[in-house]
């Protein structure tokens, strides 16, 4: 019986979730005056829309990993949503390709204000050893901030789930840098 096996496995596994990391405010690249009321609300929960704007899919592996039981992001109030209309934060990976530029801008526009943008990975941030590996060429626009405004940059190739979570929390944290 599957139910019996599932329950047995759940009890044997126990809880593997770890305490949440602190927001890493040093990742903020843009400071904005925000209404205290709004921050109070967002301090509790944030809904995210991901856009792969041309990544090698390495960053996506870590976004997926963030959904695993070690990180317990829904317990922190962090949730990934399907529609840009339903979110507060846009998470963008990859050097932005020209073939996806329009779709990225439209997604950004579709998110209601106030909104935050987190650029993820060396390609998306245009930094580190890998930041200029793809560079800008006939097919690529380079880093995300060249195309839409960015609040937080999380470098790494790819950044670990923990680093990504620190960046996401930094975007919506009410604390000043």
């Amino acid at each position: 019986m599957a139910t019996h096996l599932i329950l047995q496995k759940i009890f044997k596994t126990g809880i593997v979730s770890e305490p949440a990391p602190e927001a890493d405010l040093s990742l903020r690249v843009r400071e904005r005056e925000l209404h205290a009321e709004i921050l109070k609300v967002f301090g509790q929960a944030v809904s995210i829309r991901c856009v792969d704007a041309g990544s090698c899919n390495g960053c996506e592996l870590e976004i997926h990993a963030l959904g695993g039981p070690h990180y317990n992001i829904e317990g922190l109030g962090v949730k990934f949503a399907a529609s840009p209309r339903h979110v507060d934060l846009l998470l963008v990976t990859g050097p932005v390709t020209r073939n996806l530029e329009v779709a990225l801008k439209r997604t950004y526009d579709a998110i209601p204000e106030p909104k935050w943008v987190v650029a993820m990975g060396d390609c998306g941030c245009g930094c580190g050893q890998i930041g200029d590996l793809f560079g800008e060429n006939y097919a690529t626009r380079g880093k995300v901030s060249g195309v839409i405004p960015v609040d937080v940059e999380v470098p790494g190739c790819p950044p670990t789930p923990e680093a990504l979570l620190r960046g996401i929390l930094a975007a919506v944290s009410g604390k000043a840098r």
Partner: peptide, 11 residues
Amino acid sequence: LGYTHKGTEKR
């Protein structure tokens, strides 16, 4: 497809 075409081969 082709949305993530980054010009990798040119690169």
